[in-house]
Amino acid sequence: MMLDAIDHVHVYVEDLPAAAEWYQQRLGFVHDEAFAEWYKQGGPYVIRCGAAALSLFQRSACNPGNTIAFAIQAIKIPALLARLDQSTLDYTVVDHQLTWSVYFYDLSGNPLEVTCNDYAAATPVRVAATQKTVLE
């Protein structure tokens, strides 16, 4: 099982609109409209510049710190879950209705996320992985 890339980094900010503007003016980031509805529902404000993406969170609503989110293809989800199960690592799988994410912590307590943005392809793979776990 190989990760594909760093998908995005969670950034916790004091003033979300000011932070989005700062990243836009200084580094050329723009709002990723694919996640606009997510933000309206209380999710992060996702900005992108080329292949780089940041998920901006209002600091008052979240604990300070950063989460690194790695990208994974849908077909690799069963191998990821099997590896996490073998390690007896606690993890949480979240259906964001737009993406699938697996959350866990590294050895030092740093939060990590492995996410699949191909929701349509990941959903049946995730369901099959869940059924396999239940059957075993």
Rank of each mutant, 00 (worst) to 15 (best):
H10C: 08
V11H: 05
V13E: 04
E14K: 13
E14A: 15
E14I: 05
D15Q: 08
A18L: 09
A19Y: 03
A19I: 01
Q25E: 13
L27I: 15
F29K: 00
V30F: 04
H31P: 01
D32S: 06
D32A: 12
A36C: 04
E37G: 15
W38K: 12
Y39N: 15
Y39C: 06
K40C: 06
Q41W: 06
G42I: 05
G50W: 09
G50P: 13
G50N: 14
G50C: 10
A52M: 13
A53Q: 14
L56T: 04
R59N: 08
S60I: 10
S60M: 09
A61M: 11
A61D: 15
C62I: 09
G65K: 10
N66M: 11
N66W: 07
T67K: 09
F70D: 00
I72F: 00
K76T: 09
K76H: 14
P78G: 07
A79N: 14
A79R: 13
L81R: 10
A82D: 15
R83Y: 11
L84R: 09
D85S: 14
D90I: 04
Y91D: 00
V93P: 03
V94W: 07
H96N: 14
H96F: 03
Q97L: 11
W100D: 03
W100P: 02
S101V: 04
Y103A: 00
Y105P: 02
G109S: 07
N110A: 11
N110H: 14
E113N: 05
T115H: 02
N117F: 04
Y119S: 02
A121E: 14
A121C: 07
A122G: 02
T123Y: 06
T123G: 06
P124N: 08
R126H: 03
A128Y: 01
Q131E: 15
Q131S: 08
T133G: 08
T133A: 15
T133H: 14
V134W: 09
L135G: 04
